[in-house]
Design a protein around this nucleic acid. Sequence first.
DNA 1: GATATCGCCTGAAGGC
DNA 2: TGCCTTCAGGCGATAT
Length: 271
Amino acid sequence: MPELPEVETIRRQLEKEIVGKTIVDVWWDRPKMLRPRPEAFVNGVKNRRITGVERKAKLLIFELSDGFFVCHLRLSGRLLVRRKDDKPDDYVHVVLKFENNKELRFAEARLFGYMQYVESQEELDKILEKYGPEPLDDLTAGEFFKILQKTSRPIKLVLLDQNRIAGVGNIYANDALFLAKIHPRTPANSLSASQSSSLLKAIEQVFKEGLKYGGASDQWYRQVHGEKGSYQEHFKVYGQAGQVCDVCGTKIKRIELGGRGTFFCPQCQTL
DNA sequence: GATATCGCCTGAAGGC
DNA sequence: TGCCTTCAGGCGATAT
């Protein structure tokens, strides 16, 4: 699933591929994937030039010669840069067509992802204001500790809460908690300043690793030319239930937390 | 206000 | 082989 490193990998590739291109047509077959409505989306983006591709947390922001559109890949979204005559891709539900037969295909197997036309900077700011700070940005150890002090919810769920900290998803939350030797159920406000600081460093470390390997390709995530990332070959605990911990040799456990698969080493990460 | 739960949605995997 | 059930999960809406 695309988290901050995966979305940033896509953003960097898209920046090279589609900035300066004008959207000459839009094809779609799933109304729910185009917001606010398909007609408004098409009217908003058609004949507009893409002037930049930015990112906030897991949200891609496409700057247009007039207005914006944003794209959330949710669980299984892919953005593929292809030529019109390239072989079809599976699960494609939106295609932005450019001049010179180039196109951006939005493939989404589970239909959770969406593209949304955003008319003004004010409207965009409203969308972005709900996101908390990003760990890779300018979040200091002190600010991070303050955020964690505000709630007694399990730390793993706090990391996944985009309103508090933006960009962390299930994979990197599991691996960062392992590196910081913190049990996923630990109440956030019970962490010491030193543990909180270690956790922030661990998040930065797994994000940097994720970026270095071009993201983690589970079943769905692909880069813009269809290639897989390789961070999945470097998972520390995510998806590793039953495998032995690299540090102590204990078997990695899987529990459910907030309805999501949660992986940890019961020896290295005690409550 | 904070927290917990539900529903969206479909492909893949496993059981029979 | 084919059908059925279970699992995966980000996030907004709704309930507690």
